[in-house]
């Protein structure tokens, strides 16, 4: 991959991952051929242990227990290093830092001067204006996850990799967070790993079911995300997807 010109680094790319993943002699998943559309949300579902998070780690360039045998193609031919932000199921907030300090953590870890003004504007936009000085221990689960979202957004990377970020939240907070994340990550190339068919159908431009021996591209409703969760098409798609995942569809 070539050296990264600035304008290309910030443009959301198409990402294509092809290959198999093995742990020792055993294949965890694959062969797969997955494309993450530029500026779109791609949702990956599958049974526990099928390798959804591993697939995300391969794209993020993180260390894994096994070996990926295949290729990762980025449409603008610029490496993904430094262009990816990560959001996990656990909020990963540092308990000794305030909400504001957690939000600007990335800049501090790179030894850069953090843009406090931008962080404060971002926190105000996601409803944490009055909580910037609090430590994570004083926040609710929803507020903690909002802070994690603010930290992800503060990085302003063109690619966001989300590993079940809303799964630990209660139903109403989860719905709020889904809408907030969809709004704030608009235009970025997003990979969302989820267990929840409803979440995938609501948010995904593309839905992919990961299986031990490949992937299945699941058709999405014609409407655009974020979809109305009460629309008949959305409900029907969720039901079909759930039945498929349970092996009864």
């Amino acid at each position: 991959m070539t050296s990264p010109p600035n304008d290309r680094r910030v443009t959301p790319p198409v990402i294509r991952l092809r290959g198999s993943y093995r742990i020792g002699a055993e294949i965890l998943f694959g062969p797969v051929d997955i494309t993450l559309g530029a500026g779109q949300w791609t949702c990956i579902l599958g049974r526990s242990g099928v390798g959804k998070s591993t697939l995300l780690r391969v794209i993020a360039g993180l260390d894994c227990a096994g070996d990926f045998d295949g290729s990762l193609h980025v449409s603008d031919a610029v490496t993904l290093a430094g262009r990816v932000s990560l959001m996990a199921q656990s909020d990963l907030l540092l308990p000794w830092l305030t909400v504001l300090e957690n939000t600007v953590l990335g800049a501090q870890l790179r030894g850069e001067q953090p843009d406090i003004g931008r962080a404060q504007r971002l926190l105000a936009r996601i409803g944490l204006r009055d909580h910037t000085h609090k430590k994570p221990g004083a926040l609710s689960g929803g507020m903690r996850q909002r802070t994690a979202l603010a930290r992800t957004l503060m990085e302003d990377r063109p690619v966001a990799l989300l590993d079940e970020p809303f799964s630990a939240l209660d139903a109403s907070t989860r719905a709020d967070m889904q809408e907030l994340a969809a709004e704030m990550l608009q235009g970025k190339t997003v990979l969302l790993v989820t267990h929840d068919p409803a979440e995938a159908v609501r948010l995904g431009h593309r839905i992919i079911v990961l299986k031990p021996r490949g992937v299945q591209h699941w058709p999405t409703p014609v409407s655009k995300p974020v979809r109305d969760q009460y629309a008949p098409q959305t409900i029907a798609c969720q039901a079909d997807l759930l039945a498929h995942l349970r092996g009864t569809g």
Binding site: S90, L94, G106, L109, R110
Partner: peptide, 22 residues
């Protein structure tokens, strides 16, 4: 926790700053 170090890695953290701040 490894998750926190992974996050720091994707943020482009330096070894020294990871030690100091995490």
């Amino acid at each position: 926790p490894a998750d926190i170090l992974d996050m720091a890695k994707t943020m482009g953290a330096t070894k020294f700053q990871t030690m100091r701040r995490i």
